[in-house]
Amino acid sequence: MSDVTIPGPRREEVNRAGRFLFGAGIALLVLWVLVPIWFLFVNALSAPSEVTGFPKRFWPSFDLASVRFFWNFQGVTNALWNSIKVAVLTMILSIGMGAPAGYALSRFDFPGKEFFRVLVIMTRAFPLPLLALPLAVMFIRTGLDDTVLGLALVHAMLALPFAVLITFSLFSGIPVELEEAAWTLGCTRLQAFVKVVLPLALPGIAASAVFAFVISWNEVFAAAVLTIENRTLTAFLLQSLNVSPLPLKFAGGAALVLPALIFIFAVRKYLFAMWGIANR
């Protein structure tokens, strides 16, 4: 043992240098993530003249003129409201259909189970936003074109595989014995689900619902293809990229980013649990 021990001081130096590099690396990565967002918010919280001015300050002037300009711009509030409506609908649709499927996969063994599971996983190998193209035609025929529901259906298709896989793992994480114990203590299957499984799964289900919300909130392509009058915020910003002034773009960008920041913070505990099992 003694012949491999590096003399005390030198090892300490190496350690200190290592720790410094490690810390510097972390700091660099943190700056890499945060600084661009900071710049966006500096722009959003400065007056339009500052946004287009040069050189720029690296600190916002907290002049809300850009935000007001954005808020009062023709169609913005409407788009914002549409985005929220579509995202909420997406959340309800994807969890409403995904959670029962996830529960069935986690609790039952039945012919066709593996087929369904592979099917769901397989959808991830397809560029789902492209679905908007054929659905645009289908929606015109059914009157769903340019509606909040129509877009929400497409977004629900984007979010459904995740909802199924995430709830599958959530329910799998709740021991079957808890449910069985409830049955032996007088519960029907439904009662056991409501009294035992649901309270335990609820935070996780809420997290996956938030995730579905974010998927819809952020989606650009399908939203741009499927809406004309009832644009969501992303579609609105995309369609007006060539014509809108910079302050509008940046305030809009900030409006897109802010809820995402909050939501990711809200579900941060579940992010890793959700993705861990989405692997299988």
Binding site: I37, N218, L237, G253, L256, V257, A260, I264
Partner: peptide, 10 residues
Amino acid sequence: AIPLGISDLA
């Protein structure tokens, strides 16, 4: 994880 919640447009 923050950029995870940020859309490609944003």
